[in-house]
């Protein structure tokens, strides 16, 4: 459970001289983890994953997968990895079965494996249909089937929910959970949306402008998030509320007031105070920071 499957240390990368896309990225994924790699578009997620797969040549730092160097043990490592990088990599003129057949012998899989993976992603009924007639979501699912083909120890999914409808996203989450639970697969899943992956990941890494801002268990991230949560209220007498809550650094924005959230019990206490003071409460809302706000908070913190 505690063996590092992936460890990156002080990884820096630039496409052109002078503009570093990644700066001293250190990342560790242990066996059995579902690691959410989060960051807004253009933050360096795909570049990091491409470096991991050897699609980009490492410049500074070290990358170890299964304890081996991707540059020197590339084939050995790639036999154990299934990947989906950005948009689907499938041949439109071929059927789903043929797409998988292209890689079947390369991964040394048995014929029956094709049906297994198509069934897993829910494409068993359309395996004989040309992929050019698939929707984007179906192509994405076929790409996931392709990634699952070798029965990998490590699954790398870069923005796998792109093109999936809400039902597809829920199904994908369930699939990832099952693969992790039933097959012990370690999974790295990148996304620009925390809420999209928070239900399945056990650990999180947050990258922003090529720098790793946070890495740790999801609970640790929630602690950071909690510290940034605020309460938004609107009452019949906002001036008095500011006086009553003078110890809470209340901020005013037009007719709305906001202050730091410190727990549900305190919220109830504030509500009681307002009622006892004959102040009508028109609006009470807990504001959890979204990923962007969390980035800002983490950036400020760092």
């Amino acid at each position: 459970m505690h063996t590092p499957i992936v460890s990156m240390n002080d990884l820096s990368f630039s496409y052109t001289k002078g503009s570093k896309i990644l700066q001293n990225i250190s990342l560790e994924v242990k066996a059995g983890q579902i690691y959410g790699f989060l960051g807004p578009n253009g933050s360096g997620k795909t570049t990091t994953l491409r470096l991991l797969l050897g699609l980009l040549k490492k410049q500074e730092g070290s990358i170890k997968i299964f304890g081996k160097d991707i540059q020197t043990s590339r084939i050995e490592i790639l036999k154990e990895i299934g990947s989906l990088i950005e948009n689907p990599s499938v041949y439109g003129h071929l059927t789903a079965n043929q797409n998988l057949e292209v890689y079947r012998e390369i991964y040394n899989c048995k014929k029956g494996r094709l049906d297994e993976v198509l069934h897993t992603v829910g494409l068993a009924d359309v395996g004989g249909k040309a992929v050019k007639n698939y929707s984007l979501g179906m192509k994405q699912r076929l790409s996931i089937a392709l990634a699952l083909l070798p029965g990998p120890k490590l699954l790398i999914l870069d923005e796998p929910t792109n093109g999936l409808d809400p039902t597809g996203i829920i199904e994908l989450r369930q699939l990832i959970k099952n693969l992790n639970k039933e097959h012990g697969m370690s999974i790295i899943i990148s996304s620009h949306n925390l809420s999209e992956v928070e239900k399945i990941v056990s650990h999180v890494g947050i990258i922003f402008n090529g720098k790793m801002l946070f890495q740790g268990a999801l609970d640790e991230l929630y602690d950071v998030q909690k510290a940034q949560t605020r309460v938004l209220i609107n009452t019949s007498d906002n001036d008095r509320v500011i006086q009553l809550l003078h110890d809470k650094d209340v901020q005013r924005d037009n007719n709305m007031l906001s202050f730091a959230f410190e727990g549900t019990e305190e919220m109830a206490a504030i509500n009681r105070t307002l009622l006892n003071s004959n102040i009508d409460l028109y609006h009470l809302q807990r504001l959890d920071p979204n990923l962007e706000q969390l980035f800002i908070a983490l950036t400020t913190k760092s």
Partner: peptide, 8 residues
């Protein structure tokens, strides 16, 4: 990218 990340 799929070809290049296959074990060949």
């Amino acid at each position: 990218k799929q070809v290049m990340s296959s074990p060949q």
